[in-house]
Design a protein around this nucleic acid. Structure first.
Lengths: 333, 333
DNA sequence: TCAAGGAGCTAATACGTATTAGTCCTGCTC
DNA sequence: GAGCAGGACTAATACGTATTAGCTCCTTGA
């Protein structure tokens, strides 16, 4: 009742109940392999109840080497100031599945600071049973150390680094992108342009691979800055282009640029030009990135790794195709 | 280099460097009160470096009883599915200040589940050095226990429960609301209606107190369901009402209802009627709730409590007034 | 030559729980 | 009445680090 009182520990219960600390641990821990008289069990429980005992999570963790605590390392803010956070569904999925599996989350801060702070944060990662990494950055030194030590970690998004030893849950951009292109070919499109952002991320590589796999003759345009104008678009039309495919990313830069240029040229989709986005805003033709599911699956994989369950350590999820309003048959055959 | 290797501990370093574990702890812990030869210091550091030693955070925490880990208990999802999360700025502020102060955050899950799960989650709260609580719900039993034990906790939002013993950082709705009403009086409004939601939360009480403090003759209308129609609004006009003040809340129900009814009645603001919101969407006349700042200050207060610094344990922040477009002088004097 | 004092280090213990290898009974069998 | 089988516990230890009291050895001064 008094303020500042020290919370009771097992030793206190033991003293009052006239048993040993070990007995208390056995009873309260629900350990059924150690035989214990029902009367003792009840007595201990009662004293614990009266004292309002709650196990000390840190001590439990140290003794058990398991805390049901998963790290979440974001390489950026988890609650970004920017209201429109494209990645939000991923974190939402992480939280949901963590709750389902009875895991709490540790949000590491200082993850986007200077190198030294970042490395320190990565070290703190060990506080949990395992850690989720979210971001395309792989600081090889610290991360490699974690992997080498057998510390369970899972990246969200495909990560080919460290000789492919990093477990991850990503999206199958290759297949999904190929599907979109195949669809365009089926509709009769032959002259297609693929607009890729100035980015070397695996997710970017994968999309291009899918595109060229399905339609090898697609012209790849590398987007650097805001060089995309109405003139560019008109140029394409003159070359016989009937469809444009855009890389969809978090920022959505490419999509907005193309959209703007098409509008500026006074053209409309899909009448003048078909427009598809590889993982874009909802409702636009192309495919959808299953962010929420990625979050959920990453948590599940991590828990499997923590509990030493045998699983596929690198998973790619299917991206559901989206039939939007901006894709149709080419204008002139 | 091999997989699954156990991470090195101080004992390993000690063995290799030919010193005791205590020495290693002293050197690596930067303990300057214990004298140590420079040569020894260097040798230990070197071995630690070679082995890639990183301190085990859990053990450190147990020994030091300080982990630089703050709990965040939300009584709902921290990453809600709903894209438009009004409270987002609060969490953003929490994260920002936590990063500034070098604190990581533990996100407790299962906080919105059934009572038993919730209580369990509250108990886990002890894992950190202290805990932030966000939500109007105060489960008296568990929370009282924490407070009694002297466990540092801070609520976000004013909490009068438990005999006023709960530390919090809230918004000064009373003063801010009074200011809005005084402004209306100054403009010449005499017949005013205050629309309050069906809610007994302190934040709701406070607003009403502020309103009546500045303008005791204000008519208080309790909003129950969707009973607000164009007819209601016309009725007010007939009664000589020239200004309506609405309680602003997370859901914004009241504001939308009034806005809808006014529009339906074919009236416009502020020509026919002045409209102010007590803590509403940005740009609307009334005042703004300093959410981000609340998050930041809550973290600071919590850290002060953790480090036993003397501070004001219950803080109310000023809400900046907003001069929006929907308030003007009354139509007819 | 011995006491005093300090430099450099370590043994021991604490933190709070989980687990394992026993110990000490009691009652039963032959 | 020795031997055995459980039943009911507990002593001891582990988990990995931090801290403190105190030990050893060396130097210095009278």
């Amino acid at each position: 009742m008094t303020t500042g009182r020290r919370p009771p520990r097992q030793a206190d219960i033991a003293r009052i109940a006239g048993v040993s600390q070990a007995t208390v641990s056995v009873v309260l821990g629900g350990n059924r392999t150690v035989r214990m008289a029902e009367s003792t069990r009840r007595r201990v429980m009662e004293v614990a109840q009266n004292l309002g005992y709650v196990p000390h999570p840190v001590a439990t963790r140290l003794a058990r080497s398991r805390s049901n605590l998963l790290g979440l390392y974001t390489f950026r803010s988890a609650f970004p100031t920017d209201e429109t956070d494209t990645y939000h569904p991923i974190l939402s999925g992480v939280e949901e599945e963590a709750a389902n599996l009875g895991q709490d989350l540790i949000l590491f801060t200082g993850t986007s600071g200077p190198g030294a702070r970042q490395e320190a944060a990565i070290r703190r990662t060990r506080l949990g049973d395992g850690c989720l990494f979210f971001g395309r950055h792989v600081p090889e030194g610290p991360v490699s150390r974690l992997v080498d030590d057998g510390f369970p970690l899972v990246y969200i998004g495909r990560r080919p680094e460290l000789g492919g030893r990093i477990p991850y849950v990503g999206a199958d951009y290759v297949t999904a992108s190929a599907l979109v292109l195949r669809r365009l070919l089926d509709l009769g499109h032959r002259e297609i342009r693929y607009l890729r952002e100035a980015d070397e991320a695996p997710s970017s590589e994968d999309r291009q691979r899918g595109v060229l796999q399905a339609a090898p003759k697609t012209g790849v345009v590398r987007l650097q800055g805001a060089e995309l104008t109405a003139t560019t678009v008109r140029g394409w039309l003159a070359e016989g282009v009937t469809a444009v495919v855009v890389e969809g990313t978090d920022t959505g830069t490419a999509y907005r640029a193309v959209r703007g240029a098409i509008d500026a040229a006074g053209l409309s989709t899909p009448d003048d030009l078909s427009l598809a986005v590889l993982g874009g805003p909802p409702g636009v033709s192309g495919f959808e990135v299953p962010m929420r599911e990625m979050g959920r699956r990453a948590v599940r994989l991590l828990v499997d790794l923590v509990t030493d369950k045998k699983t596929v350590r690198q998973q790619l999820l299917r991206c559901p195709p989206v039939d939007g309003a901006h894709v149709g048959p080419p204008r002139s055959r």
